[in-house]
Design a protein around this nucleic acid. Structure first.
Length: 880
RNA sequence: GCCGAGGUGGCGGAAUCGGUAGACGCAGCGGAUUCAAAAUCCGCCGUAGAAAUACGUAAGGGUUCGAGUCCCUUCCUCGGCACCA
């Protein structure tokens, strides 16, 4: 054993050893009676953006700790890795550097794979794949055609961001303050035909199954529940007066969850794209101009929801279905056409948004709900106006006096009797638009024929291969300019036809990759029996442990759940939930810096290239670019991303200190589910700890290894205390790894143990045996976090043994017993002293001891105890 | 705007079921070692105070013998909002 800790050398040796012994290779046991339980541990695969960032290191270290810990617990572990390889950044790189997206992607994969390997993760690399290869995406094309035939994929108009200068569709991210990121042009909404996945057909199941996912954080289940947004309400119609109707029975449909307030409707608002708005605008130039204005700007809901609410009357009126009164129809920029019927009833007295709108345009406000002890006023909005749980109907004719539920029932019944509406369950969840007018994605396997319509590509013509040598111009899709791609024959009639040139949303690839890891080499089927081996548990299905960023709490995780159900219903698998246990790691965030270029575009600067000036309290006051010393603008603190250029490359850290220090440091910095503001302060401390552990072990080994202690016989009191500490730590660390999945406290516990070890006298024979036991167990306990170092330490302590193949040490109950315990004594809840009592002392004895304690006597000032609270094993509180 | 999460020393964080607030580490300060430095080791380290003690977990209020933890209100930060992944 070397006397100095040399990470580069031991990490190389350990990685060679693991490669040679196939330590991370996962092999299915398909015997039907597996000897070991399986543990499929999956971290979200990375987009190959160029380099790893700290978020990746954090994510994959968590996965590796859990994988290695479970292997030591006797599980057959699968930890795979691959590449979410389709996506926009490859096209952006092509534009910026003139590299083809495919070449750029494969280069990035090669570099990042080498980075992952240098971190020593126990990944089974034989299962690696990139989603941009035809071997992978052919199966999603194959599935797509089946879903198309089942009617679960359909075509309709969807709204996109249109850049009128570049003549291209932009992602929401590429629309900045309403302008195109490259052209600077004002963005418009445009409707184009797109394919949609009918996720709403599964809304009920996606919602209900959330209750059967105890291994998911409550937070994520709640977010998905709210996203799906099941609401029970009433969908009803306002008939149009004859003078406005284009057909005899034309009606304006709306949905509301507050049918009890229907008598308070004072106007109706429709989306700018609503047919009524279009018709009214035909001979109303002012309205036409307003509708044009509504089309300006992007489609992102966050922008629309924060916009100033504006509206204009259409001049059309509709008939209130219950009162028969005429109600004005307005166009509102906050009403979304893609949402329900694209129209809403407005009850300004009992809806905050309607209230603000009515105030602004002087529209009538009619109170129809009253609550006991509350008074209504037109001057300001009060929370109780919109509270469903209190209040009864007033000014509502026959419904007066009814509460929420009774009023809704009565009103729905009356509307139904008139044929003008009924109760309806509605979901907030919308169908998933998957068409992208982009190049670097999976081609949608559809052929458009003038005679046969849309025809799915037959199996024997799959995959539809994405051509890799194309010219990216930033204007429109390159595929639409490639006749050699889109010119084809109709599979049905054999006539000339045109291939679809849109590609799929890249969420498609990530919605099923976890299944493909079980059988990446299968060239004849999407999945096979190995999927059942890795994904079927006794009481649950799916990946045993999934780990990834909280930013995926809704979209990726919901789409994956949806896909699993689709694949089940196509008969590919026999389970419906993809992930049994989910760990959502908090974002690694870092400050952003930028300079504004001509035309308002921002040039994002990496934090590593910036010097920050702070005031005496540590708050940043300014920043300059290292290269030229001139100021840069300080942006917000955001998740590390390529687009904001605030990712911190871990490579410098690995090069300087080694992979183990990087792993230890990121695990020690904070618990996994908490967001982490990046700072490398403290890396030195992690490195110092590893050096100290090496030195301590080296000193022990240099004096000659001993047989490890197996019981308390022959130990001094102080040595027995150390041994108790060791076995308490074993229990704590196993609990932290297994149940709590909180690694910073496990590390802190081992640090404490090592501090106690340093203070103990261990030179006698019993002490040497205890030292051996402590050091062996420390090496095994820390193996999941710093495997290279522990591999070397354990080999020195137990020559010829392989740390990774050892069972995780179990706490010895015999080491934990204690004769006396310390209890805290409080007077009126304030800490006033402590007592030592026998471990088995009864309540009366504890009370007596506490009342006699010096601090208690002093602070009771002779007053009698009114009450004595004894918390076993913790404290005594004397109330006077 | 809506949905979700968070806010504890100079900093990262601990306190797992309502029971000793600040474990563990970083930074800092003092000392040992050294010709000197690095490295290493020992000690101190929430605020005020000489001390006793008082105060202290974003702010304000409440429940409780006891609140960082539970409830209400407010402020701030982060994640998501359907074409970033």
């Amino acid at each position: 054993m070397q006397d100095k800790y040399q990470p580069a050398e031991i990490e190389r040796a350990a990685q060679e050893h693991w490669a040679k012994t196939g330590a991370a290779r996962a092999v299915e046991d398909l015997s039907g009676q597996p000897a070991r339980p399986k543990y499929y541990c999956l971290s979200m695969f990375p987009y190959p953006s160029g380099k790893l960032h700290m978020g990746h290191v954090r994510n994959y270290t968590i996965g590796d700790v859990l994988s290695r810990f479970h292997a030591m617990q006797g599980y057959n572990v699968l930890q795979p890795m691959g590449w979410d390889a389709f996506g926009m950044p490859a096209e952006n790189a092509a534009l910026a550097n003139n590299v083809p997206p495919a070449a750029w992607t494969y280069q990035n994969i090669a570099y990042m794979k080498q980075q992952l390997k240098s971190l020593g993760f126990a990944i089974d690399w034989e299962r690696e794949f990139a989603t941009c290869t035809p071997e992978y995406y052919r199966w999603e094309q194959w599935l797509f055609t089946r879903l198309y035939k089942k009617g679960l994929v359909y075509k309709k108009l969807g709204t996109v961001n249109w850049d009128p200068v570049d003549h291209t569709v932009l992602a929401n991210e590429q629309v900045i303050d309403g302008r195109g990121w490259r052209s600077g042009a004002l963005i418009e909404k445009r409707e184009i035909p797109m394919y949609y996945m009918k996720i709403t057909a599964y809304a009920e199941e996606l919602l209900a199954e959330l209750d059967n996912l105890p291994g998911w954080p409550e937070q994520v289940r709640l977010m998905q529940k709210n996203w799906i947004g099941k609401s029970t309400g009433v969908r009803f119609a306002f008939p149009l007066a004859d003078e406005f109707a284009s057909t005899p029975d034309e009606k304006l449909w709306v949905f509301t969850t507050r049918a009890d307030t229907i008598m308070g409707v004072t106007f109706v608002a429709v989306a700018a794209e609503h047919p009524l708005a279009t018709r009214a605008a035909a001979n109303n130039p002012e309205l036409a101009a307003f509708i044009e204005e509504c089309k300006k700007g992007g489609v992102a809901e966050a922008d629309i929801a924060t916009m100033e609410k504006k509206g204009l009357p259409t001049g059309i009126t509709v008939t209130h279905p219950l009162t028969g009164e005429q109600v004005e129809v307005w166009v509102g920029n906050y009403v979304l056409m893609s949402y329900g019927d694209g129209a809403v009833m407005a009850v300004p007295a009992h809806d905050e948004r309607d209230f603000a709108f009515a105030k602004k345009y002087n529209l009538p406000i009619k109170q129809v709900i009253a609550a006991e002890g509350e008074t209504f006023s037109l001057d300001g909005w009060q929370e109780w106006y919109g509270d469903k749980t209190k209040g009864i109907c007033i000014n509502s004719g026959k419904y007066n006096g009814l509460g929420y539920a009774a009023a809704v029932d009565a009103i729905a019944a009356d509307l139904a009797a008139k044929g003008l509406g009924d109760k309806k369950v509605q979901f907030r969840l919308r169908d998933w638009g998957i068409s992208r007018q982009r190049y670097w994605g999976c081609p949608i396997p559809i052929i458009h024929c003038k005679t046969c319509g849309d025809v799915p590509v037959p199996d024997d013509q799959l995959p539809v291969v994405l051509p890799e040598n194309v010219e990216i111009t930033g204007a429109g899709s390159p595929l639409a300019r490639m006749p050699e791609f889109y010119e084809c024959k109709c599979p049905k009639c054999g006539g000339d036809a045109r291939r679809e040139t849109d590609t799929m949303d890249t969420f498609f690839e990530s919605s099923w990759y976890f299944l493909r890891y079980a059988c990446p080499d299968n060239a004849t089927a999407m999945v096979d029996e190995r999927v059942a081996y890795w994904c079927k548990g006794a009481n649950f299905s799916g990946v045993d442990q999934y780990i990834g960023g909280i930013e995926h709490a809704i979209l990726h995780l919901l789409y994956s759940r949806f896909f699993t159900k689709l694949m089940r219903d196509v008969g590919l698998i026999d389970f419906g939930e993809p992930f049994a246990n989910l760990l959502t790691q908090g974002m690694v965030v870092a400050p952003t810096f930028y300079r504004e270029l001509d035309g308002g575009k921002k040039q994002w600067i990496n934090p590593a290239d910036v010097d920050v000036v702070t005031d005496e309290r540590g708050r940043p006051t300014g920043a300059t670019l290292k290269a030229d010393g001139l100021p840069v603008v300080i942006g917000g603190t955001e998740k590390m991303s390529k687009s904001k250029n605030n990712g911190v490359d871990p490579q410098a850290l690995i090069d300087q200190y080694g992979a183990d220090t990087a792993r230890l440091f990121i695990m020690f910095a904070s618990p996994p589910d908490q967001s982490l503001e990046w700072s490398d302060a403290g890396v030195e401390g992690a490195f110092r700890f590893l050096k100290r552990l090496w030195k301590t072990t080296h000193e022990h080994v240099a004096a000659g290894v001993a047989a490890a202690c197996t019981g308390n016989d022959g130990l001094s009191t102080a040595q027995a205390d150390l041994r108790r500490k060791l076995h308490q730590t074993l229990g704590k660390v196993a609990d932290d790894y297994g149940r709590r999945k909180q690694f910073n406290t496990a590390i802190a516990a081992v640090m404490e143990l090592l501090n106690a070890y340093d203070k103990a006298a261990l030179t006698d024979t019993a002490g040497r045996a205890l030292a051996q036991e402590v050091l062996e167990d420390v090496a095994l306990m820390l193996f999941p976090i710093v495997p290279h170092l522990c591999q070397a330490l354990y080999a020195a302590l137990r020559p010829g043994r392989d740390a990774g193949r050892q069972a995780f040490p179990k706490a010895d109950p015999g080491a934990l017993v204690q004769d006396e315990i310390e209890l805290v004594v409080q007077v009126n809840g304030k800490l006033r002293g402590s007592i030592r009592v026998a471990a088995g002392a009864d309540k009366a004895a504890i009370e007596a001891a506490a009342l006699a304690a010096e601090g208690a006597v002093r602070f009771m000032e002779g007053k009698p105890a009114k009450k004595v609270v004894v918390v076993p094993g913790r404290l005594v509180n004397i109330v006077v």
